[in-house]
């Protein structure tokens, strides 16, 4: 069992999950409420990582991070080193790659909130932000939790993009999925099996808990109405 790879994956997934909560909620709220006629284009862009193979994303990210691209040059100019093969690079790649997994459940939940409640809130003089905070968010907890958990779990299991931009540096970019792949390549099936089983069990438990909580199997937080 390679604990450094496991810890690295968990650290990456947690960080990506927090960033996606911060970035995803506004995007989801905009997608759920905006009446802009070209909104479908934004929806398509957000959903792209679901259908694109990680190789496409990984390839473009590698090129974008490299010195041949303006972004890569700008970053290297500021920080003195490139983005590829760094933990920061992995975080950026994972945020892009897991974006739809956070945004889509959240947007769906926001859209389901009863319009009349929003209108009532506005009639009573609450600002849009306050309505969002006190009405929409509490009523959309299920969707937000699902989005957060999916982005966490998806990042934890991410392989292709990390393989393409990571460079397999222990403690920096060698995530658990890469470690598993290496073990398989080196024909060390026992090592691969131990970590693969752990990941499988963890993913199953996480997803089960999320669905159970969404079905109100247990009350993990007091229902405030």
């Amino acid at each position: 069992m390679e604990w450094s790879a496991i810890f690295l994956s968990v650290r990456l997934a947690l960080l990506v999950c927090v960033i996606l909560l911060a970035v995803g909620i506004p995007i989801a709220a905009w997608l759920a409420t905006s009446g802009w006629r070209w909104k479908f284009l934004v929806e398509a862009v957000v959903a792209l990582p679901i259908v694109l193979p990680p190789t496409v994303l990984g390839f473009y990210l590698l090129v974008a991070m490299g010195p041949a691209s303006p972004v890569g040059r700008l970053y290297a100019g500021f920080f003195g080193h490139g983005l590829a093969f760094t933990f920061t690079g992995l975080v950026i790649a994972s945020v892009i790659y897991s974006l739809p997994f956070a945004v889509q459940p959240m947007a769906a939940a926001f859209a389901q909130v009863d319009r009349s409640l929003l209108n009532a809130s506005a009639m009573l003089g609450a600002s849009g932000l306050r309505t969002f905070r006190q009405i929409v968010i509490p009523l959309s907890r299920g969707g937000i939790v699902t989005g957060a958990v999916l982005s966490f779990a998806h990042t934890l299991g991410e392989f292709g993009v990390v393989l393409m931009v990571g460079g397999n540096i222990p403690g920096v970019t060698r995530t658990v999925s890469i470690a598993i792949y290496d073990h398989v390549q080196a024909l060390e099936y026992n090592g691969a099996n131990a970590m693969a089983l752990l990941l499988l069990a963890f993913s199953f438990i996480t997803l089960s808990l999320t669905y159970a909580v969404n079905r109100r199997m247990w009350r993990v937080w007091p229902l405030q109405r």
Partner: peptide, 16 residues
């Protein structure tokens, strides 16, 4: 580390 020698080559050919 590249996953294969081709990937190692790609890392350096892309300038990363």
């Amino acid at each position: 580390l590249g996953e294969s020698i081709s990937q190692a080559a790609q890392f350096v050919a892309s300038g990363n």
